[in-house]
Amino acid sequence: MNFWHTVAAITWKDTISEMRTKEIVSSVLVFTLLVIVIFNFSFGATQQTMKVVAPGILWVTFAFAGVLSLNRLFVPEKEQDCLEGLMVCPVSREAIYTGKMLGSLIFMLVVEVIALPIFTLLFNLPVLSLQIVTITVLATFGFVVVGTLFSAVAINTKAREMVLPILFFPIISPVIISAVKATEISLAGGSWSSLVPWLPMIAAFDAIFFVVSFLIFSYVIEE
């Protein structure tokens, strides 16, 4: 059976389930907005300080939102042992990984699509530019490629809500560093070429960890 056919079936299944409950997207979105507002309180919200701290706020918010949504990713697979149901299907484990990963990417992007304009509005900063959208898509992809793998690990641990961030944050630190730096440069009006060390860094991270996670995912779910 066709690899992408399986991937599409899994992503589709996760997406309609999410569209029905809106469990992940709604809670993560509310969380994101709250974090943005609270950061506003803690930094005094003058235009001057905001310019300096906004990139950090944006990426801390998205990283935490990512953990929150990734924590839920394998919960439906655990209820009624659905993951075992998937494992007895004649499909490759790599397809299961890719399908789950794409589903998670969609949820995160939906949250960000709503959060970015609000961010623009509340911070009075031009966050909604092509440059920043590119950075966001690349960095979010980086989050979910390792996040999906670690989410599958965390689901079988005690205190999984705590395990995921402990695994996730150190590994994605290069993505956070690069995304913050690139956003900073972009907000200061830098050109595409001034984003150079950072965007390729995120892209390289994405490519490397997609391949590695793709290859080792089967070792996570196979007993």
Binding site: R20, D81, E84
Partner: peptide, 14 residues
Amino acid sequence: IGIVTHQTFLYNNL
């Protein structure tokens, strides 16, 4: 192989 266990392998929201 077809398998049935005491877990249904079904997604509650679908």
